[in-house]
Design a protein around this nucleic acid. Sequence first.
RNA 1: GCGGACGUGGUGAAGUUGGUUAACACUCUGGAUUGUGGCUCCAGCAUUGCGUGGGUUCGAGUCCCAUCGUUCGCCCCA
Length: 423
Amino acid sequence: MPYQTVKGTYDLLPEKMKRFNELETLFRSFLEIYGYSEIKTPVFEYTGVFKKENDTSDMVTKEMYTFSVNDKDSLTLRPEGTPGVIRLIIENKLYGSMELPIKLAYIEEMFRHERPQKGRQRQFTQMGIECIGDKDPLIDAEVIALGYFYIKALGLEGVKVLVNSLGDTESRVNYKKELIEYFTPYKDQLCTDCQNRLLKNPLRILDCKIDHENPVVQNAPKMKLNEASEEYFSKVKHYLDVLGIPYEIDDKLVRGLDYYTDTVFEVVSTNEESGSQATIFGGGRYDDLVKEMGGPQLSGIGFAIGLERLLILADAEDVFPESEPYLDAYVINLCEESDQALKVASMLREEGFITELDYYHRSLKAQFKSSDRKKARFVIIIGEDEVKNETVTLKDTLTKAQEEVPVKELCERMDQLLEDYYE
RNA sequence: GCGGACGUGGUGAAGUUGGUUAACACUCUGGAUUGUGGCUCCAGCAUUGCGUGGGUUCGAGUCCCAUCGUUCGCCCCA
């Protein structure tokens, strides 16, 4: 096999890594402001954590990296964050030691065996939050707010918030049945995708791009939320209004994960750079997942932001100022010995100056070139004379003034020059 | 998983009725009398090599097949 990254994975080089970190740093500050605590779960779990009985989602049924070693238990690389967080809560019985709702967040790599595309990798990073323990429209709105205001704080413009309600478990199950009954006689008139979706996820038929003008689809029965869900959803919308978050109701918004109930939401980008993978973050409420995984009956809600997609947009909209290289000092060494240069560089670094020194004993010219390329503010030259006198030649690259300074006074002198300059 | 496009150096890329030394630009390295840079000038920079492996041909970066990867749309999702 050639030495190359495996399909759908990538290296993070310094420049991109830096912007990646900036996205994370801002996200972490939002977590702090909103009272979320960051956690980390293992990269792989027992397969059952992710795969529930009767799961129909593509993600679970055909995209998971599942393996076992020595025919032991089946393990799976995590394809999404929520189940691991819930496992963590249950296993550590956090509902007994933390005040409800439990507000947790993660920044973790996810793995899905999909066909790679722009904005869709096999290993990718999600930043997500989960708020578990209470069901209240206030929480739904606040969760959406954290994500939305984070995106806005980054400076992204072309974003749209979509919300919908799937109703509670009971009405959704009933609606599914109703749809299956309705569509089955017309099965032949649906596209092949939809014929497959019929039993697995009939809700998706309503959103089919091929069949959307098909009268059979258009005349399909509409989802009716029961009174409780209807009221819940309208409160969520009310709070979003209060928060000043613009949103659109999208009754086609279904979401592919099986466990969602009531509120679901997505933030999509209208920037064409994001191509067909326009969803920046998405999430929803899950009433039954905690119980299903062996915990108490606790409702939760959460979302996950795709870091790579976010970065595509951040770059497209140029939200990060280009970072310039910068050094406080570059130590030029003209002696055969490196001792003095090393000592001086070390002294500067101890004082907090960003410092580099020449490693190769190159020509003065070459060393000056390096220092210039690295945008060093001060150049410090050490030659035989300087070593003899216990001094260095200090050059300010902005004023181009040059002077001989005793080593002991170097840091002090640099501080003084900087102070004078910025006055 | 399905359908389409593409793959030449560190980078951007020329190179299409198959034919001698793979253009040009940038970056990088070295130099322009050995202690002063950012400009300019000069020189060097693709292991007979054009993602990889086969094939056709007197001869292939240019044609065919396979494979790996990227990308676009579908699907799905972050």
